[in-house]
Design a protein around this nucleic acid. Structure first.
Lengths: 227, 227
DNA sequence: CCAGCAAACGGATATATGTCCGCTTGAGTT
DNA sequence: AACTCAAGCGGACATATATCCGTTTGCTGG
């Protein structure tokens, strides 16, 4: 009932690609006050500007507040910490990324191929947004360690990889014995921002090398006599 | 010249397991002054005690200094930051871990089997030293991001996994096309402390589940007709 | 137009990390 | 035993994050 001769037959629960933001009910409690909207825009603009002209962690929250013309209280009520502000700045990029993935990886082609593409695309996302991702990671320390992997973006990545792995299994392109959740985490761990940047800039590996290795690893997971 | 009928024949460079601390020449510039040794001991003791009675990140460096009866300057000259102090506290555990690995994974048995054992043991190391490892990670932010993967312990982990993978390839238990360095990083990434603790405590996965999945993944990397 | 109030504001404040720098002292040297 | 000085010491200081709380203000219903 799962597959027949390697041909995909039906979709058990969770095989569709997850939708980013799904589950967010958002009671829309009240429209944002105009002054709040204004200050949000100013904060974001100021942060973008300062981050661009200096590095992200060479800019303090005080400085952002001063440049935006808002006090600390305002700043921190809206963005619980620097990482949250960086997340907000990243939101637009994430949206683009998510859209592109839905278009390319939701559609046709083998699930394995789409998974490979997805991971390669994620590597590029890492390169493109290294500074913000690093800052977000830095802010996820102490009592906030959970936010790293508990946030909606990571959940979506996780769900997407898991769904693709499951589809690939259905299509007979991947061993059926795998623990899908764990494998999804393992694959994503490979592109963990710290490790990725270390490989890229300290070990001098190219993006191609990293993704090629990942692809080889995926090819290894085909079902076969070995085992 | 590499292998004959799956039997290990010779050892190309880098196949031996690396020795922890190798390459550290340590010119031994001068013996440590007695007062310095004393204050080092007091700091370590104070830190251990405070960390035990509260959580690691609920204890400030000031507090450690006060409890140990040393000033901030003293504290920070010896330990550049909190992560360094935690590393010092972890050193003993690391030594034990390294010794055990040398005994069990340096010896006989299939390389693949030893690799599996090693990764399982590392997972246990994670569980046993979660608090300190987390604190070390937290301290590796901002301009110190490199220390995370550039430190001697990680280098040793990396070298060990790489050597075992290479041996497994020689023994014919693993695909020969793999990029050994990348695969080593990928395998270790799976046990990255943040992800591991998230899986264990937020997702409720058991250590067995995580390692079993990792083992299955390794089994998938056997050489085979697939590819 | 006005009153009421939740939301937003902003700067003082608390706390943490990490640095600076003048003073002290252990341990070789004469 | 006195001399010397690099190493060690310690607390004030600079800077960053994050919170608190009294004040102001945009919105809405009357």
């Amino acid at each position: 009932m799962a597959r027949k001769g390697g041909v995909f037959v039906d979709l058990p629960q969770g095989v569709e690609l997850p939708v980013f933001g799904a589950g967010v009910v958002e009671a829309a409690p009240r429209r944002e006050r105009s002054d709040a909207a204004e200050s949000r825009r100013r904060v974001l603009d100021a942060a973008r500007g300062l981050f661009a002209e200096r590095s992200v962690d060479a800019v303090s929250m005080h400085e952002i507040g001063r440049a935006a013309g808002v006090g600390q209280g305002t700043l921190y009520r809206r963005y619980e910490h620097k990482g949250a502000l960086c997340s907000a700045l990243l939101a637009e990029e994430i949206e683009g990324f998510v859209d592109e993935v839905r278009r390319r990886a939701g559609g046709r082609g083998s699930a394995l191929g789409r998974l490979k593409w997805f991971l390669g695309r994620l590597a590029r996302f890492n390169d493109d947004n290294a500074a913000l991702l690093g800052a977000i990671r830095d802010a996820a320390g102490g009592g906030r360690r959970v936010e790293m992997y508990g946030n909606p973006f990571y959940s979506w990545l996780r769900g997407t990889v898991a769904a693709l792995v499951r589809q690939a299994m259905n299509e007979g392109a991947m061993m059926g014995e795998l623990d899908v959740e764990c494998v999804a985490d393992a694959l994503l761990a490979t592109l963990n921002i710290d490790l990725y940047l270390y490989q890229r800039h300290e070990l001098g590996m190219s993006r191609e090398r990293v993704t090629r290795s990942l692809h080889a690893l995926l090819d290894g997971l085909r079902p076969g006599p070995a085992s």
